[in-house]
């Protein structure tokens, strides 16, 4: 079974749960930026929750199915259509051989996830089918889909008409709160700089992709220092350090960048805070212009969010498993 790419969309990539274990070698985890939507889409079509799907940013592709399959679209609000007829999101539906799947305009969120029963069956590279574009690794030939590509799909046994209950669907807003833990380099900020970081309503710029999300809104005041050996002269420079996924670096003390799952693994900018892993999905679904507050939580708060997210995943599995 294959899917022909009639139109690729803006940047559609094959992604799964990710490629863990190689970040120390400079290869980031990649995988679906919104992991919850990945799980939901896969479970809807009867796949294992970490199987490979298509991640479509801002704009959906146009896909021709060569055989019958069951499909589900989760994540960003972008109404799917089969031969021009609307289908629901967060619900599995059938497509026949020769059917064309297309999408209406994005009306909320940023990234839609298209799961097909059997999963997108590109080769596994270093334990994952995820596309890492910067490294030309994994996915379909290591790159976003292009017109004319023919995607292999595994054999599956999905059921149409399965649905994620309303309270387990994600809704999207242009005003979001993203929970963070401060550090590791927040000591570079003055008291005012720290307050500015947490009190500013930041706006996501169009410079937002799988590597990082850049926000504008304020300049952060730093504390004076004698630059340590190996750090540059700019107050935002540090001696090179590893960059955690979710870390928020602030080059030049302006425009914080949240690193996401295709991040570079290290560098010399101060990271003033780190987004809780449970809220990386919220960042993933932010489109340019999204007004964002970074809200500080402590370790207990972070663990509570993790437990909350795990409980939600568990409920999803109970409903769809």
């Amino acid at each position: 079974m294959t899917i022909e790419v009639r139109k690729p969309g803006l940047s559609t990539t094959v992604q799964d749960a990710g490629r863990t274990g190689y970040y120390d070698l400079g290869i980031p985890p990649s995988g679906a930026l919104d992991q919850y939507s990945l799980r939901a889409a896969n479970l809807l079509v009867g796949n294992a929750e970490g199987d490979a799907v298509l991640e479509c940013v801002y704009m959906g592709p146009e896909l021709l199915f060569t055989e019958a399959a069951v499909v589900a679209v989760t994540g960003a609000a972008m109404v799917p259509k089969v031969n021009g007829e609307e289908r629901p999101q967060w619900e599995s539906f059938a497509v026949d051989a020769g059917d064309v799947l297309s999408f209406a305009y994005l009306t909320g969120g940023a990234r839609a996830y298209v799961a097909v029963s059997g999963g997108v069956d590109v080769p596994v590279v270093l334990g994952s089918r995820s596309t890492y574009g910067l490294g030309a690794l994994g996915g379909f030939s290591g790159r976003p889909l292009a017109e004319g590509d023919v995607l292999p799909v595994g054999s599956g046994t999905g059921t149409a008409g399965r649905s994620v209950p309303a309270d387990l669907r994600t809704t999207y807003s242009k005003d979001v709160e993203v929970r963070v833990m401060m550090g590791l380099y927040d000591h570079r900020l003055s008291r005012d700089g720290r307050a500015t970081f947490l009190d500013t309503t930041w706006k996501l710029t169009p410079v937002a992709d799988r590597i990082g999300f850049r926000y504008s809104g304020a300049t952060l005041e730093t504390v004076d220092r004698e630059p340590p050996f190996g750090a540059g002269q700019d107050p935002s420079n540090i001696v090179d350090a590893p960059y955690p996924i979710g870390s928020i670096q602030v080059p030049g003390s302006v425009e914080p960048i949240v690193l996401h799952r295709d991040a570079v693994s290290g560098g010399g900018y101060m990271m003033v805070a780190t987004v809780l892993s449970g809220d990386l999905d919220v960042v993933a679904q932010s489109a340019p212009g999204t007004r964002t507050r970074f809200v500080e939580v402590d370790l207990d708060g972070a663990l509570a969010l993790r437990a909350e997210r795990r409980a939600r995943d568990e409920r999803l599995r109970e409903v769809l498993g």
């Binding site: 803006l10 801002y58 704009m59 305009y105 994005l106 940023a110 169009p206 489109a287 340019p288 212009g289």
Partner: peptide, 9 residues
């Protein structure tokens, strides 16, 4: 004429 994507015009 509608913008198909979000961004800067």
């Amino acid at each position: 004429v509608v913008s198909p994507i979000p961004g800067v015009f």
